[in-house]
Design a protein around this nucleic acid. Structure first.
Lengths: 250, 250
DNA sequence: AGAATAGTGTCTTTCAGACACTATCAT
DNA sequence: ATGATAGTGTCTGAAAGACACTATTCT
C-alpha cells in the first residue's frame, strides 16, 4: 500500500488525533545570570508546580505563529518586541503520558530576549515569574538543569517543574551550549551595548565553566562581529570597560 | 488566564486539530555514495513526484514509535534490523499549505542504516527506490540538496520531490554535516568492518568537500573510536587497506 | 596612593593543512 | 618491475590555554 493509497483511504475525521501544543522556553538575564519565565500552576494536574508558557496550535496558524502568539498573549510582548526576540524550534516531545489529561504532543521553542524586554514581561504579567538557571556541566549529555526561584538566590531548593518541562529546559540549555560558539544566541540575551566581560559571563553561565579571558577576547574580537561604540560602561567604582555592539558583517 | 484555566475551559473535541504525521529520511549507501529511500507518488496531489515514506501518528504511539513503525511497514525492516538503525528526530514542519489536502504537521526523522540493510529494503519493497544525493557545499546554510534517480548516474535531471520534502532532505544533510565530527553518524552508514578510505569517502560525500588524508586519519585514530580488526580489505588489485571496527570506549 | 578591574604580550601546546615520502599488494 | 593505493614523517601556521604584566578609572 503506497502512502497515497493510505491517505485516500484515510478519513481525516475517522481516527482520533493527538492534540498539538507549543511550549516556550523564554530565556533572558536577571542580574546578568540566565533566567527563564515560568508560570505556577494553580490546578490539577501538577498543581503548585512551575510550567513553561504554552498554548494549543490552532488549525489556521503555523507552529512559529503559535509560538509568536504565546509570546504576545502570555508574556505580554508588544508585536514590535516579538520581532526582536530570537526564536527557534527546539524539539517535539511526544511521550504518551507526558500530560495525564490526554495525548498531547508539544513542539518546544526557545526564545531569547534582551534583559530589558525580559524585565518588562515580568513586570507586566502577573502570572509570570522568573527562575534562575543553574547549569552544571555534566559532559556532552548536558546534565540536569536546575531552576531556582528568584527569591532563592542561595539555590537551596530547586523548583519542581510540571510535565516534562524539566527535560525541555535541559534541552534548551544544551542547544544553547552547542550554538554558543558559532551563532549569535549570546548576543540575543544582551542589551544593545555590552562589555566583553558581560559577554563572557553569559558564555560561562550557559556553559557552566570558567573561560580563559585573553583567549575569549581574542576569539570574539577576531570574529569581527563586535563593533566598539567608543562609549564606556558607567557606574563602576573602577576602570570602566569599553562597550561594544553586535553586528554581523554584511 | 493561566494555562490551566485555558485547558480546563478547553473542550478537547471542540476545536479542529492539525493532523500529525512522521516522515522519514532513510539514508544509506549505494556504491559508497549517500542515498535516500523514496516512493514515487502515483496519485494527486504531486502525482509522479518522489516522496519520503511517512505515516500518520496514532494516538497510542509515541513519535519515535511511529517512526519505527514506518521503518517496519514501509521499508520492510525486520524488528531486529529496526533496532540496528540510528534514528533521531530532525525538525517539525508546520507550514499551513505544505499539504494541499488538509492541515498536516509532520515530524521529520532521520534514520541511518548500513549498506546491507539499505540494499535489502530496496530489494524487498516494490514501491521503494533509492535516490543518490548530490551535496553541494554552499556555506553553513547547507545549500540545496539534489536527489537523483539511481538510473541517472550522470546526475542530469534532479528529482522533483513532493510537498516540502526537499526542505526536509536538505535539513537532514545539514544535520549530518553538523554532527559528523563529534558523533557516530558516519559509522551508522558503514558496514561492521570498513577502511579509513571508506570512512573518509562518506565524510567527503556528506560535507561536499575534499578532506586532507593524513589529517583525517590522525583525527579518526586519535579519537580512539576505531579498533583495528587485523583483517584486510579483499578484492582489490592493489595494496588492501586495514579494516576497522567502530567501538566507542566504555 | 590604593583598590579593583580592563586590557595586553608572550610562551607553550595542540592540532589541522600541505606535501613528499615510504610501504605493500596484485598483476 | 609496474601500477596503484595504503599509510607515515615532518614542516608550517593558526589558534587556545596559561600567566604575568601594564593601563585606567574611581574613591
Amino acid at each position: 500500500m503506497t502512502e497515497d493509497d493510505f491517505l485516500r483511504a484515510y478519513d481525516p475525521a475517522a481516527f482520533p488525533r493527538p492534540a498539538l501544543t507549543v511550549d516556550l522556553v523564554l530565556m533572558g538575564l536577571r542580574a546578568g545570570r540566565p533566567a527563564v519565565l515560568l508560570t505556577q500552576r494553580t490546578q490539577h494536574p501538577h498543581a503548585g508546580r512551575w510550567a513553561l508558557p504554552g498554548s494549543f496550535v490552532r488549525p489556521d496558524e503555523t507552529l512559529d505563529g503559535a509560538a509568536e502568539r504565546v509570546l504576545r498573549e502570555k508574556a505580554g510582548f508588544a508585536p514590535a518586541a516579538v520581532a526582536d526576540t530570537h526564536r527557534e524550534q527546539l524539539y517535539t516531545f511526544g511521550a504518551l503520558d507526558r500530560d495525564p489529561r490526554m495525548r498531547i504532543v508539544t513542539v518546544a521553542y526557545l526564545a531569547l530576549m534582551p534583559e530589558a524586554a525580559f524585565a518588562r514581561a515580568l513586570a507586566q504579567e502577573a502570572g509570570l515569574s522568573a527562575a534562575l538557571l543553574a547549569v552544571p556541566w555534566a559532559g556532552e549529555a548536558g546534565g540536569p538543569v536546575a531552576a531556582f526561584a528568584a527569591g532563592d538566590p542561595d539555590r537551596a531548593t530547586p523548583l519542581r517543574l510540571a510535565f516534562d518541562h524539566a527535560a525541555i529546559l535541559a534541552l534548551a540549555v544544551q542547544r544553547m551550549r552547542g550554538k554558543l560558539d558559532y551563532s549569535d544566541v549570546a548576543f540575543a540575551l544582551l542589551p544593545e551595548a555590552f562589555t566583553l566581560r558581560q559577554l563572557q559571563d553569559v558564555h560561562e553561565a550557559i556553559l557552566g565553566t570558567a573561560l580563559n579571558k585573553p583567549a575569549f577576547r581574542r576569539r570574539m574580537l577576531d570574529r569581527g562581529w563586535l563593533v566598539p561604540t567608543g562609549a564606556r560602561e558607567a557606574g563602576t567604582s573602577f576602570r570602566p570597560a569599553e562597550l561594544y555592539r553586535f553586528q554581523k558583517p554584511l
